[in-house]
Design a protein around this nucleic acid. Structure first.
Lengths: 239, 239
DNA sequence: GAGTGGTCTAGACCACGCA
DNA sequence: GCGTGGTCTAGACCACTCT
């Protein structure tokens, strides 16, 4: 009793171990984990305990279980990464695949808003990406991404950038995005918006502000999207 | 093996049984279920199987487990129902509690858009509720609700309507809302919007269209909210 | 101390994928 | 037919709440 103020179930410890292996790339995306039995023996716990730990990882979409085959580290394919967080769709729900046109990629010192949103320190550098995203060959989103350079050391030298950045985050930098906090509001189109999107100044746009959260809880992307929702809608399911 | 094309695990059958008890109000909101052991004996399965079935119910927020005490049918208090689905908050995430002013409640025949959205039949009746919702004494949302009369027989005679309709749905009609599909877009304020909200015609508003889904999968509410997001934002966490 | 949910085990058996 | 994940059991013990 005394000496252990915080009770920590066995399966939690197994969970932490598994997360560690994945985040340190001991097991890499699309590779199989050892079987549940093998892990149970290695960690000296029962198969049920390993299973319970894995249940949480499945829920967080960090691993995939395939009955009869094995358990694999989930891979963020372009397709999967896109549809997980890109919410623009046709009214009714049919998902649309966007393409993206890169406008600019710049490295610079972080500004105070960015320092605050991303939990950086003064003097830290960031990479700013401006893109226009098209659906059905129509420009519908003008997007500004801010990435801490420390998490993505040479990202400003990679061209072209893929459509789904998060797949690249995982592949090239070992950064797994597990969730994103979004704040939406309606706003009038500015002159800058009108330069990138076929809208009139003053037209209503949907602004999406996103902070993406990595596996270790750190905030690794700040994104501001200005969306023309005259043809598309932003779809969410609350539960 | 033949004769059973669809494999149906035991815990699924237990799950179905529990859902049935709750949806038929055999166990009512805030009341305790029988203990896991008691249910296991009654249903002739092991405690672990009952537990696994209940895990799903916890995830769907239909029951609450309290260690040392028991398992209870989740109760949609005003507070809980509100914060579960009402997403307007201050920038940064601090939740705001809205109040509501009732503008009108009318019973009428369903229109074709409503028939389609709610899966009704021609000639079915609906109740239409118009409300203005205030945050910090400021009108920020103008809202139109469409409810099938068949699900809520005398709802047009209840006054005043509570702030959180879903708590009343559960309490008075046994209807549990488990999820909601929302479609958001930016739109310019119309003359009607300007009558209810302190905004200029043409100002950008956030429109939220929601279909609420009940425990049995049926769509029981269609809601259109027009929101002034000059002070507040719509907050979601994607995961 | 009695009763409830929560964890953990060891072992059996089922469903599935593949060679 | 073997190996993997998926289900199910019976029983032990732990943590928590209330009396």
């Amino acid at each position: 009793m005394e000496g252990s103020p915080h009770y920590r179930p066995l399966y939690r410890q197994v969970y932490d171990f598994l997360v560690k292996q994945i985040s340190e790339s001991v097991w890499r995306p699309s590779e199989p984990l050892p079987s549940e039995q093998a892990l149970a023996e290695q960690l000296k716990v029962s198969q049920g305990t390993v299973r319970k730990a894995m249940d949480a990882l499945v829920a967080e979409r960090l691993i995939d279980r395939r009955q009869g085959k094995g358990t694999y580290v989930a891979e963020q394919t372009q397709e999967r990464a896109l549809f997980r967080f890109f919410r623009l769709a046709e009214p009714g729900g049919a998902r649309k695949t966007p393409t993206s046109t890169e406008e600019s990629v710049k490295r610079r010192a972080a500004r105070s808003a960015e320092i605050q949103k991303l939990g950086l320190s003064k003097g830290d550098q960031v990479v700013e990406i401006l893109r226009t995203r098209l659906v059905d060959e129509r420009a519908v989103v003008f997007e500004r991404n801010i990435l801490p350079l420390r998490n993505f050391p040479d990202i400003d030298r990679k061209r072209p950038l893929p459509n789904a950045l998060y797949a690249m985050f995982q592949q090239d930098y070992g950064v797994n995005i597990v969730s994103a906090e979004e704040e939406l509001r309606a706003d009038a189109a500015t002159a800058e918006d009108a330069r990138y999107l076929p809208v009139e100044i003053g037209a209503p746009l949907l602004q999406i502000e996103r902070v993406a959260i990595a596996l270790d809880g750190s905030r690794v992307e700040w994104r501001l999207s200005r969306c023309d929702t005259s043809q598309l809608i932003y779809a969410v399911t609350l539960s």
